[in-house]
Design a protein around this nucleic acid. Sequence first.
RNA 1: CGCGGGGUAGAGCAGUCCGGUAGCUCAUCAGGCUCAUAACCUGAAGGUCGUUGGUUCAAAUCCUUCCCCCGCAA
Length: 314
Amino acid sequence: MTAHSAHDGLRVVFMGTSCFSLTSLEALLEAGISVVAVYAQAPKPAGRNYRMQKSVVMEFAEAEGIPVHTPKTLRSADQLELFRSLQANVAVVASYGLIVPQSIIDVPTMGFINVHASLLPRWRGASPIRSAILAGDAKTGITIMRMDAGVDTGDIMAMQSVDIGPKVNHGELEKRLGFLGAEMVVDVLSHLDAYVAQTRKQSEDGVAYAPKIDKESCRIDWNDSAENILRKIMAFSPSPGAWGEVDGIRLKILDAEVLENDVAVKIGCIADGPVVKCRQKSLRLTLVQPAGKNIMSGEDFLRGRCRLLGMVIK
RNA sequence: CGCGGGGUAGAGCAGUCCGGUAGCUCAUCAGGCUCAUAACCUGAAGGUCGUUGGUUCAAAUCCUUCCCCCGCAA
């Protein structure tokens, strides 16, 4: 590290909450960039017994001794005042989860920079990675943009794509994109003037919004092709997990493989393997988790539960 | 005090209600069969039944203490 890096003099405020954002925060610190404050979503009661849980970003920032702010909203005069007092000249946002009002965006001289996990304008919104997998996209990537008041509508500073492998799950892809985003955001901050100069507007074509996911959208409809179901499994693996219900128990399916040769049973019916018949082709369940149990292989799952053979997953 | 499931051999489970020899399916090892095999046959090894205390002639099982894992919900 040279004594006078290109990012000398930057005072960065970081805003993020998830593991995806944490990777970027870590990279900023590692690059010697001065992060003067961190914003993360407020701890909320979560998990068993409703214990208050801090986000990973908050935990990390506290451990690093960086001041952490966890407002429930940024739309207040107090928050604007607080943000001004930080005297940041640039802010980095990565899957923060709160809307940043224009009044705050206007504060830093170099503006707000957002790390988004898709090839914008495709998959603006909250779950870009899942959406890309669900749609069967061949590739996705990271876009670094100048944030504006819209949802992921800002001008693009940098973009890099990665291939979505034939069988990559959300967890793996998120991790990969997290590293790429971290690398890119460090590079952008290190050569800010150059990136600002090449900023361009988003295309009007190919706009797509990533829908919010809920429990029911994670449920598997076996009356679909094996390929589509597999995408769904991958998009929700390892968390929250695509699921079905057999014999009164909830079963998450975390990994599977398409079998070309059809098994001659009803749709949704479990055959040895375990193999489940879909509308087209079949799926062999390779990694599952019954409610209340640990994650196990499909074979293990069936081992002590032979009675499930021939039953239908709903 | 949010609701609920679970901890029994390396793995997945049954047995618990109603106390009485520790079981099943796999994996492992040995032998056999086979041109051959992840197939088949025979046999073996492998458990302080999560922990503490109690009840009992006798506890995986009933009562009790604590620990750990997980699903839902948020």
